[in-house]
Amino acid sequence: MADVATRDSVSDLIRGNIDAIILKTLSGADSYGYEILKSVATVSHGEYEMKEPSLYTSLKRLETQGYVESYWGDETQGARRKYYRMTVEGAQELTDATERWIHVRQIIDSLLLQDGSEQ
């Protein structure tokens, strides 16, 4: 049961950074939904699997904010796929979000890893 609780806690911590994770995934190349989900699972070595509703909610938000654009692919076989690409504004947001994450991580490290000598 501890593994499930740990996995849920990790997912809760990651959830606040889904937009940045998606932007990072799109920084390499345009992608469609399933491919983004697969990439996140692969890059995290299976430690985090983004849920489909979370992905599409985030993509819609990112598109509304102007950080991603979508377009329909021209597949010759199978269903048409909606692709997403990061905009210039999205690239700046990814840079900003990464800086915010580094700053927050430093604060949390200071608070949780303190040895009591600074009190």
Rank of each mutant, 00 (worst) to 15 (best):
R15S: 14
A29Y: 12
Y32I: 00
Q77A: 13
E93M: 11
S31P: 01
L13A: 10
A91L: 08
Y83K: 04
A5I: 00
V68R: 07
Y83H: 08
E89D: 13
G66W: 01
Q119F: 15
S117C: 06
T64G: 09
L13C: 03
I18F: 04
I36F: 01
V40T: 01
Q114A: 13
S44A: 10
T87D: 03
L55I: 05
Y71W: 09
E63N: 06
N17G: 11
E99L: 11
L62E: 03
I102T: 07
D19F: 04
S9I: 14
G116H: 02
E63G: 05
S58M: 06
Y84L: 01
S70M: 04
R81K: 15
S117L: 09
E75L: 09
E93G: 00
I36V: 10
I14F: 00
L55G: 15
V43P: 07
R85S: 11
Y56G: 05
T98Y: 12
K51A: 15
Q77M: 14
R7Q: 11
G28K: 12
R15Q: 07
Y32L: 07
D3A: 15
R80W: 05
T95M: 13
E99S: 12
R15W: 01
T64S: 14
S117W: 01
S31Q: 10
S70D: 02
Y71R: 05
Q65G: 08
A91M: 10
G28D: 09
L111S: 08
T87G: 04
L23S: 03
L23R: 02
Y48T: 05
Y67I: 02
S27Y: 05
Q119V: 10
L26E: 09
M86D: 05
A91P: 01
V10F: 09
I14L: 06
E118T: 11
A91F: 03
S70V: 05
L62F: 02
E49L: 13
G33H: 06
E52F: 06
E69V: 14
Q119D: 12
A91R: 08
S39L: 08
V68C: 06
H45C: 14
I22S: 05
G116K: 03
A41Y: 05
D12C: 10
G46H: 06
T98R: 12
E52I: 08
L62D: 08
Y34S: 14
G66S: 01
L23G: 02
S39H: 09
I14M: 01
E99G: 09
R61S: 12
D109I: 13
I102L: 13
D19W: 03
Q114F: 11
E75R: 09
I14Q: 00
V104G: 00
W101Y: 12
G66C: 04
I21A: 08
R7Y: 05
L59V: 02
Y84F: 12
T95C: 11
L55D: 13
G90A: 06
